[in-house]
Design a protein around this nucleic acid. Structure first.
Lengths: 337, 337
DNA sequence: CTGTTAGCGCCTTCAT
DNA sequence: ATGAAGGCGCTAACAG
């Protein structure tokens, strides 16, 4: 005979209390149609017996598990981690847990993750992931079954609501700030070009220059991958071109800090010779040298709002109309620009 | 009538294949006692029908969920995040998912989290948390029910296996390195004193000084909280004492970087006037100025090994004897010391 | 306000 | 190598 892991079950409580299973169930679920006396009595017994409901059984009998999946490609990255933290807080506040999965090695693993998460009957899924174009019919099948919200716009998933930062505005803020300091030759180090966020920041940059009647010079725009290392390399590259620029807009703080290093090695002073503005406002930004002027993204809030939206959808709130929420970035002025 | 979320069930597959439920179950679970022909036939039908097993039902009928809980106090912190990443990878490699929970606000929430996780029938729990002394009988009750492993030694949980970094050795390495550079007056900025890791690093530091016949001078030891800010403040404090020191061992890279800032503001050169060694090897360490010499902790590996151990325990591997695994740190030499 | 009756989808045990 | 019966712990639906 198989031994259950579970010690005391609802049946034990019911027997002990001399009531039916259903009444115990009602108490557990906080229904109002139980007399105060029986409720109290049952609660005492639950307490005494140390009864714990079995979430698996509840999930099987009902249709929800109060579990959300969170899928990302990189849990070791600051950005996604912050988003996840916000999501976790919000989830917990609503009685949900987060089940996490990362499809780092191979983006093709992703549909497999979704399947696995759906087998586990998550009520919904949060996507905190790079915005890459994906053509895989498995996605569509999937998102017809399970409610989802993406954090950071995901072109492949047009039918899925999105919560993101307004990157066009963010890019514009960065360029405008530099412009306001009198810079006319503003280099840019971007992230991977297939990211929607990267394109948007580029667009904001373009808009700002255009408004100032300055032509965009693609020869002082270099593609990076958001890492320190890539900011460093990109700046060396920029320097090697011999094309004059007096400021750099790096699309991540890490790249900005890498850029600072390259600039310093080239004997340049910041911000006197070259001004730098980053993007993200990572904790190190305030403590690097010189302290980094940057565009802050409300990362945890992104996660919180996305989760809030997802839970609303999951719980059948028909008031959800907004299919794209865009949060504003903010200029944090420090010493690098 | 209630509609189930689930579309096609095992019964559908069985009917379609003209076999019993049980045979389908065997195929799903990869048992070997099914003839190749029927197996193939059933697999085809599963494919065609798009059948997905329901993990809830499996968990209810069997006794395992292939889900592990991961509890920490701070998901936004680099250290725990790295550990979690390692844990997630290892878990996935074994077919497990991680359910995450953070008890940040109030450590007293923790037992509540454990209860909630146990309601969800997790097979085991990983603790990635500060090593704080806790006296709460609920812990003991809990750990008798659910297998657990702590990452970072947890004094309250003596009966639970632990995977940690050898902090005594790490502290010794840091001090020895500084000693080898000729420093005799080595200040230290610690983390919160109730952390076991902090005490251990202190002990390593003490051992190294003792071996060099240098008395420990508590007046140049300041308590921080691992943050940039606290490293900055602690260093200002150190400077204000007027007690000479030529090197600082900061128990986190963040504090080391904060210290560098304070030192710079005080007009001191690094490492000429004051040498600094950090602890952790965060990504920023290589790119701050000057690049930080530090003690690297194998964080992801910590998470991986802890998870491996937990899974072994969960799956009833009686070969598990090691109740305390200690990983070694490594000196990363850069320019700050 | 409370109880009864049916499952939820799967796995375990025992037969055959 | 396959099938039948029973149950995991709980909730939905309906009755009273």
């Amino acid at each position: 005979m198989r031994r259950s892991k579970q010690g005391v079950t609802m049946a034990d409580v019911a027997r002990e209390a001399g009531v039916s299973l259903q009444t115990v169930s009602r108490v557990i679920n906080g229904r109002h149609d139980v007399s105060p006396a029986t409720r109290q009595h049952i609660e005492d017994i639950i307490q005494r017996l140390g009864y714990q409901p079995n979430a698996l059984a509840r999930g099987l009998a009902s249709t929800y598990t109060r579990t959300l999946g969170f899928v990302t490609n990189d849990f070791s990255d600051y950005t996604w981690t912050q988003i996840m933290t916000g999501a976790e807080h919000e989830a917990r506040a609503h009685g949900y847990f987060l089940m996490i999965g990362s499809a780092e090695r191979d983006p093709n693993d992703e549909p497999e993750y979704l399947r696995l998460l759906s087998e586990r009957q998550v009520d919904g899924i949060l996507f905190g992931r790079e915005s890459r174009e994906v053509n895989d019919s498995r996605y569509n099948d999937f998102f017809q079954q399970v409610p989802a919200v993406t954090v950071a716009y995901y072109p492949a998933l047009k039918q899925v609501p999105t919560v993101d930062v307004d990157n066009v505005s963010g890019g514009r803020q960065a360029a405008e700030y530099l412009l306001s300091k009198g810079h006319r030759h503003i280099a840019m180090i971007t992230g991977p070009e297939y990211w929607k966020a990267v394109q948007d920041r580029y667009e904001g940059y373009r808009q700002a220059l255009e408004a100032a009647s300055i032509p965009v010079d693609d020869s002082i725009i270099v593609i990076g991958d958001f890492s320190y290392q890539s900011g460093y390399k990109a700046t060396q590259q920029l320097l090697s071109y011999g094309i004059p620029f007096s400021a750099i807009f790096a699309q991540s703080d890490q790249m900005a800090i890498g850029a600072i290093r390259a600039l310093r090695e080239a004997g340049m002073r910041i911000p006197q010779d070259v001004a730098i503005i980053g993007y993200d406002d990572i904790p190190a930004a305030a403590y690097c040298y010189p302290p980094l002027t940057t565009i802050r993204q409300p990362l945890q809030e992104l996660g919180r709002i996305a989760t809030q939206l997802l839970i609303k959808i999951v719980e059948g709130d028909n008031g959800v109309v907004n299919n794209e929420v865009l949060l504003r970035t903010e200029v944090i002025e420090r010493a690098s620009a």
